[in-house]
């Protein structure tokens, strides 16, 4: 008996719809966010993550409406990210019903945002999302949906974000995202070993064994996946039963 490892379905949302791409490109429609959220809740998802991948700020209000609808029907933790630029954006998302807010590009442009948001709302609701790509013998942080290199070492960055107040890290391998070949396990292990806060592994899940590897080899406290759930390949419950059968503590 112990703390359960978490399975977190991720909903990439744009213009009010859930979509999924490969390497952040080639978006494919996956359905209505509220319906999908309820389905995953019924299947036993431990949390849900919504990432607003709308390129422009035109439709930001739509996401708040979606979060409000989901939050009044789904009573598990909700993390929301995408386009969070200032403390006021964090406040708006929390007021709409988010329990945690994920900060990505803006943490790089303005690390003080992480400190300010954590001191105002508490570390427990501040997730820093790190998009990393292998460059030579280390991993580098990328921003703007993986398009822009920063020159920052991902493991060093993880330590810095936790020192500033991040309560959890969402680690996405840009090389793996949407590829279905599995998490970047060395990246996850390096970051998990470097910090004390929980790590969510993301990017590359194509089958249920990948989830097991993320926990057992990658040292992840939670695993995030999108496409294996969106298109009905597996239910969240199937994923949990598989993990349990491989000796991982899950909530069933």
């Amino acid at each position: 008996m112990a703390l359960a490892k978490r399975i977190i379905p991720c909903l990439d949302v744009t213009d009010g719809r859930v979509v999924k791409g490969v390497n952040f490109l080639e978006l494919r429609d996956a359905g209505d966010p509220v319906e999908i959220a309820k389905r995953y809740d019924d299947q036993g998802a431990d949390e849900l993550t919504f990432l607003d991948i709308t390129a422009s700020s035109d439709n930001r209000g739509l996401l708040l409406e979606i979060i409000e609808q989901v939050a009044s029907q789904v009573f598990i933790p909700l993390t929301v990210g995408g386009g969070v630029r200032e403390v006021d954006d964090v406040r708006r998302l929390l007021n709409a019903g988010a329990d945690k807010v994920s900060i990505n590009t803006s943490a790089v442009l303005n690390p003080q945002l992480v400190a300010d948001a954590a001191s105002r709302f508490g570390s427990q609701c501040i997730v820093v999302a790190i998009d990393a790509k292998q460059v030579g013998d280390h991993w580098e942080v990328f921003t703007h949906g993986g398009r822009k290199a920063t020159g920052i070492d991902a493991v060093e960055w993880a330590r810095k974000m936790v020192a500033l107040g991040a309560g959890e890290l969402l680690v996405t391998s840009m090389d793996r995202d949407g590829t279905k070949i599995g998490f970047n396990l060395p990246l996850n292990r390096a970051i998990s070993d470097a910090v004390d806060v929980p790590i969510i592994a993301s990017g590359g899940v194509g089958n249920l064994l990948h989830l097991v590897e993320g926990v057992q080899e990658g040292g992840a406290d939670a695993v995030l996946a999108a496409s294996i759930f969106h298109y009905g390949e597996f239910t969240v419950r199937q994923a949990k039963e598989y993990m349990r059968d491989h000796g991982i503590e899950v909530r069933l």
């Binding site: 359960a4 978490r6 806060v197 040292g219």
Partner: peptide, 13 residues
């Protein structure tokens, strides 16, 4: 011997 994270975050009995 595996490291346990703080905060204690997630579903426990």
């Amino acid at each position: 011997g595996a490291k346990l994270k703080v905060p204690h975050m997630g579903w426990n009995e």
